[in-house]
Design a protein around this nucleic acid. Structure first.
Lengths: 145, 145
DNA sequence: TTCCTTGCAAACTTTTTGCAGCCTT
DNA sequence: AAGGCTGCAAAAAGTTTGCAAGGAA
C-alpha cells in the first residue's frame, strides 16, 4: 500500500473526508518530502494543479494532518511554521535537524542520539520526557570549505 | 560590578545610549531572570514604573540587546518570542530547556550534554556545528505524580 | 549641538475565523 | 440527504517601520 492509500485510511479512520484539495496538498507533501515547506509555499505549489484552492484551506488541512499525526512541524524562526510529512511516529520522534547558516540547507539526522541524555535528565530533574526538539546550527559540508 | 553596570558598559562599548526606557527594560529582565518573558509581558511589567513607554520601544530594545548579545531567544511555539537575559555567552550556548506540557513550567538545564553528540554529527555529516537548540517536552516532577 | 531614541500610528506578516454555498459519503 | 468542507473576506495577533519631537552624550 502506498503512502497516499495509507493516508486515506488514516483520514477515514478518524471520520474525515477526502477532498480534491486535501489530496492535492498531500501529493505536494509527498513529492517534497525533504523540503520543509511553509503553508505559503505549499499554497503556491498546490495552486499549479488546483488553482481555485484558498490559503485558508491549506492552513486548515495542515492543522488536520497534524491532528491525525502524519506531519511534524519545524520552526526555524524565520517567521513561519514549516512541515514535513512523517507517517511513522517513531521516525518523527527520533529525528533531528542540521541547519546551515550559510545556505539554509536542512539536513535530516534520522538516528536518535538522545537516549542516554534523556535518561540522565529524567534522573537529575525528575522530569518525565515525552518528546524533544533538537536543532544544530552551523555550516554544511559545502559551505564550510 | 553588578549586572546593570556590566550591561551599561556593553552598551557604551557599542556606541548605544542608555535611556530610562532601556534601563527599565533591563531591570525587569534582571528581576525576572528565569521567567522567559515575551515582549508583551515585558511591556506590561515595564509600564508599572515607566507608563509612557511604547510597545515598539520594547521590541526595538530587545532587538538591540540581541545584537549586543546579552539575551537569548526562546521559541516555545506559543506565537511569540520569549527572552532571557544571559550575560555570559558560554552559558547561553550550554543551556537547554525542559518544558512541562501540563503546567507550562520551564526548567533550565545548565549543563551542556551535547558534546559527544556534536562530535559524532560533525564526523558523520561533515557538518560544522556552531550552535544548538534543545528542548524537552514532558511532565515536571509535580505534574507527573 | 548632534543624531540617536522615543511614542504614536499605520503597515506588514502569518494565521485564524465566520459564513453561505458546495460536495463527499 | 446530512454534515463536513471550501473560498472569500475580514479579523487576529505579533512585529516592524516612518516620522516628527525629544533627550543623552
Amino acid at each position: 500500500m502506498n503512502t497516499m492509500e495509507l493516508l486515506k485510511d488514516k483520514l477515514k479512520e478518524t471520520g474525515f473526508k477526502i477532498t480534491p484539495q486535501r489530496r492535492a496538498i498531500v501529493e505536494i507533501l509527498i513529492k517534497n518530502t525533504d523540503k520543509h515547506l511553509s503553508s505559503e509555499e505549499i499554497y503556491d505549489l498546490v495552486r499549479v494543479d488546483c488553482p481555485e484552492i484558498g490559503l485558508a484551506t491549506v492552513y486548515r488541512t495542515m492543522q488536520l494532518l497534524d491532528d491525525v499525526g502524519v506531519i511534524s512541524k519545524l520552526n526555524l524562526d524565520d517567521g513561519c511554521i514549516r512541515y514535513e510529512i512523517c507517517l511513522d511516529k517513531e521516525d518523527s520522534h527520533n529525528h533531528h535537524h542540521l541547519i546551515c547558516k550559510n545556505c539554509s540547507k536542512i539536513i535530516e539526522v534520522k538516528e536518535d542520539l538522545l537516549d542516554s541524555i534523556e535518561r540522565q535528565i529524567q534522573e537529575t530533574y525528575k522530569f518525565e520526557i515525552m518528546d524533544h526538539d533538537l536543532k544544530f546550527y552551523g555550516l554544511c559540508e559545502d559551505c564550510s570549505k
